[in-house]
Amino acid sequence: METQRNTQTETKKSPQTQPHQENLKGTFAAVIIVGLIILLSWFGIFGLFLERA
């Protein structure tokens, strides 16, 4: 029966490259853009709500 663990032992990558040490600058920039979209749209509607009160 094929399991994840079996196949993992087959892959022979250097054990040093831990995912948390990888270069994720682009990822960080991308999620910040996502965060800004959320913030801007939320405050946009909050403004509309206050204006219409």
């Binding site: 996502v34 979209i37 959320i38 749209s41 939320w42 509607i45 909050f46 509309l48 709500f49 219409r52």
Partner: peptide
């Protein structure tokens, strides 16, 4: 991305009135 942003707005209590 816009779907999630819109969802947060919809769920924001009184903002839902908009």
């Amino acid at each position: 991305i816009p779907g999630g942003a819109g969802g947060i707005i919809n769920a924001s209590n009184q903002l839902n009135a908009v």
